[in-house]
């Protein structure tokens, strides 16, 4: 598969403290790659650099722009879709209007944007929530809506920053399974931040381990098990072998 996103030699310091030191990552088309590291290692800083919210001190971010050429998007926002741990749904908008927000921001007429958003509600398991407000939905449903909004941003690559870590354990497992199923259908190239080893192994095609100060990508682990995987996979020998290996590295 061809790469859609590359980060080359990205480094970033705050005042005199270096947070990121020479980070290289790549993401192939349709791939789901996790960036795994302990809290505070600089994962979110890396995401802010990738999404263009922060400019790196050195290095570049490139996005595939019709093969084989790449376009430098360092420090430019709006090329990647971004999803956070908090669902960030606007409390004053109904679910359909929240989800349609990226379309409305880009200038699509409201009725048209709503209609397009609604056409995905079934696939994302959100039927019946169109006219509801976020406060009326459970945490799991809200993250589904947030993911649909991310998808409707319409970019080739999505960055998910610990999207399921605020959910309780039982909800999280079911949302993860749902997520794998949806991803099989929409095949959105995704970079996924997590500090949860189980989640990383369950969801990823590849895992980057991020550690150190300044943080670097110390290891890359390819999860060979074909997808979709279900929760029984988390009890298999294979899964445990990956888990053991990652725990030794981190």
């Amino acid at each position: 598969m061809a790469d859609v996103l590359r980060a080359n030699h990205v480094a970033k310091s705050y005042s005199d403290k270096q947070v990121l030191g020479d980070i290289n990552i790549r993401l192939a088309d349709g791939e789901l790659v996790c960036i795994l590291g302990v809290s505070g290692v600089g994962k979110t800083t890396l995401f802010n650099v990738l999404s263009g919210l922060i400019r790196p001190d050195s290095g570049s971010v490139e996005l595939a722009d019709g093969e084989p050429s790449f376009r430098d998007i360092t420090g430019e926002t709006g090329h990647l879709s971004y999803m956070l741990q908090k669902d960030m749904l606007l409390p004053h908008k109904t679910i359909q209007d929240n989800v349609a927000l990226p379309l409305i921001l880009s200038g699509v007429r409201k009725a048209e944007a709503r209609e397009k958003a609604r056409s995905y509600f079934g696939q994302f398991g959100l039927e019946g929530t169109e006219e509801k407000y976020p406060a009326q939905l459970s945490g799991g449903m809200r993250q589904r809506a947030a993911l649909l909004r991310t998808w409707l941003c319409g970019n080739k690559v999505a960055l998910l920053d610990e999207p399921f870590s605020a959910l309780d354990t039982l909800t999280r497992t079911s949302v993860q399974e749902w997520y794998l199923k949806v991803m099989e259908e929409i095949r959105l190239s995704t970079l996924f931040i997590t500090h949860d080893i189980d989640e990383a192994i369950l969801l990823s095609d590849r895992i980057y381990i991020m550690k150190g100060r300044p943080a670097v990508i110390s290891d890359e682990i390819i999860i060979e098990t074909p997808k979709p995987r279900d929760r029984d996979y988390m009890l298999s020998e294979e899964f445990l072998a990956y888990k053991r290996r990652i725990r030794e590295i981190i």
Binding site: L53, T77, L80, S81, Y82, L84, K86, L90, L101, L105
Partner: peptide
């Protein structure tokens, strides 16, 4: 308003 909300909006090119 939550700063993260503003970040998210900016990432959507608002």
């Amino acid at each position: 308003v939550d700063d993260d909300m503003v970040r998210l909006m900016r990432s959507m090119k608002a």
